[in-house]
């Protein structure tokens, strides 16, 4: 069976799976961005316990595997009384994992803003919160966007792991189809192409557009 025939026959299931992958991607991305900002800022906080908390979070999530984290959240957390459905466990694990990597980007972005900018903001008597929000973060954001593009691709790839706790995403549907048809080359080939299209023609162009848009907004283009 050709790849084309395969897709013609199985497109409804591939489409449903892709929809789930996209949903997981968006929820994990939102969670990941929030955690990145929080942990990135906490790691630069003046208070030692706050920094220690951020460092512990980042090291645990970067030091272990996403798959281990996913299994732990899905299989172990319920033993402590937090029962989480598989859909939530999926994006929670992926988002928390990406958040740890993103936190380092946020921190690096903030540190990349020249010291003179802090001093100038202080000189016009801004409060620390104002300095961060009005002066530093916007500039940091522009500086850190390029590596965020790569991180978003990693996030998309990471969502494939949720299939291992039976979330019916693209990876899961593909495996199911393979299991019943044994058309491995067609099934996995089609899924590879779909992931590639999502990454190369949706996520990456959007991130590039965002980079250009932010740069223009900051008067750098």
């Amino acid at each position: 069976m050709s790849l084309f025939e395969f897709v013609m026959q199985y497109w409804p299931r591939l489409l449903v799976g892709t929809g789930m992958t996209v949903a997981q991607f968006f929820l994990a991305a939102i969670l990941g961005i929030v955690i990145s900002l929080a942990m990135g800022l906490l790691k630069l906080a003046p208070s030692r316990p706050m920094r220690a908390f951020a460092i512990t979070y980042i090291e645990i999530f970067r030091g272990t595997s996403l798959l281990v984290q996913l299994y732990w959240i899905f299989f172990v957390l319920p033993l402590f009384g937090f029962s989480i459905d598989k859909f939530t466990a999926g994006y929670l694990a992926v988002g928390m994992n990406i958040g740890a990597y993103g936190a380092e980007l946020v921190r690096g972005g903030i540190l990349s803003v020249p010291k003179g900018q802090w001093e100038a903001a202080l000189a016009i008597n801004m409060t620390p919160a104002q300095r961060m929000r009005r002066i530093i973060l916007p500039q940091a954001l522009v500086n850190m966007l390029p590596p965020w593009g790569n991180l978003m691709i990693e996030l998309l790839k990471g969502t494939a792991l949720v299939s291992l706790i039976s979330v019916a995403d693209l990876m899961f549907e593909t495996k199911q189809i393979n299991g019943s048809t044994f058309l491995s080359a067609q099934a996995f080939g089609a899924a590879l192409i779909i992931y590639y299209v999502l990454a190369r023609f949706m996520v990456t162009p959007f991130m590039r557009w965002l980079e250009r848009y932010m740069a223009r907004k900051m008067g750098r283009a």
Binding site: I153, N178, S184, F188, Y196
Partner: peptide
């Protein structure tokens, strides 16, 4: 750009 998990299955 594509998941390692999928490549392993492939």
């Amino acid at each position: 750009s594509t998941p390692l998990l999928l490549q392993i299955f492939f």
